[in-house]
Computed example of a mutant assay.
Amino acid sequence: MGHGGDVINELTADHREIDSLFTKIQALPTGDPQRRKLADTLTMELVRHAVAEEEHLYPAVRRYVDDGDDIADKEISEHSEVERMLKELEDLQPDDGRFDTLMAELKRSVTAHMTGEESELFPVLAESCSGERLQQLGEFIRRAKETAPTRPHPAAPDTPPLNKLLAPGLGMVDRVRDALTGRGKE
């Protein structure tokens, strides 16, 4: 995921990509092994997206948006719940009944989160930041996704400065594991 443009366009494009992955998973029959591969791709995209938001978007929300601390805390809490679900999903095969149940729960949570960002958070951020700052944040988000972890790490810090220090190292380890196992390759 690296789409270009300001932070709002970048993250909205990510949201459409995530929606598309959910649609592809749902289109396949229960138990289809391809669902596991798509779930891995979805996990990778969601984790990178969340880490980038936690490193750059939410600190900007705290700084520029009225009541930004409360908004950022709510968003990070939602990320934590999604990450918990992704960690649980990681060990499930598509023929396990819990796979479909958890996937449905994950889709509801992620869709609600993305809808809230697009309808509430992004408009107030656009009003609070200059176009130049939004462009800069978009670039920061793209760079963060390049080094972000690709697997859920629910115990990892999700606020600066520790998240910015640890995420690239976790990301490197995850990418090595992905390369060795072929995870994320279609």
Rank of each mutant, 00 (worst) to 15 (best):
D6F: 05
V7N: 07
I8K: 10
I8A: 05
E10Y: 02
E10L: 09
T12H: 13
D14E: 04
R16C: 12
I18R: 10
D19P: 04
L21H: 06
K24R: 09
Q26A: 14
L28R: 12
T30L: 00
K37I: 15
K37G: 07
A39N: 06
T41L: 06
T41P: 09
T41C: 06
T43E: 07
L46M: 06
R48G: 11
R48Y: 02
R48V: 03
R48L: 01
H49C: 03
V51D: 09
A52F: 13
P59M: 04
P59T: 08
P59K: 05
V61H: 05
Y64S: 14
Y64I: 12
V65W: 12
D66Q: 14
D69R: 13
D69G: 15
I71S: 03
D73A: 15
K74M: 13
S77M: 11
E78P: 10
E78G: 11
H79Y: 07
H79K: 03
H79Q: 01
E81C: 10
V82M: 09
M85Y: 03
K87Y: 07
L89F: 12
E90R: 02
E90F: 07
D91P: 10
D91L: 02
Q93I: 14
Q93G: 13
P94E: 05
D96V: 05
F99Q: 07
T101Q: 02
L102R: 01
A104G: 14
E105N: 08
E105D: 13
L106P: 05
L106E: 06
R108G: 07
R108A: 10
T111W: 00
A112P: 12
M114Q: 05
T115A: 09
T115H: 07
G116D: 07
G116K: 03
E117C: 01
E117M: 08
E117I: 04
E118I: 01
E118N: 02
S119M: 03
S119L: 04
L121E: 14
E127Y: 06
S128T: 08
E132H: 15
L134K: 03
Q135W: 14
Q136A: 10
L137A: 12
G138C: 00
G138N: 10
I141Y: 07
R142M: 13
A144S: 00
E146G: 14
E146Q: 15
T150Y: 09
H153S: 03
P154S: 05
T159Y: 12
T159K: 14
P160E: 00
P160N: 01
L166G: 00
A167L: 12
A167P: 03
P168G: 06
G169N: 14
R175K: 01
V176L: 04
V176N: 10
L180N: 10
T181G: 01
G182W: 13
G182T: 05
R183C: 10
R183Y: 02
E186P: 08
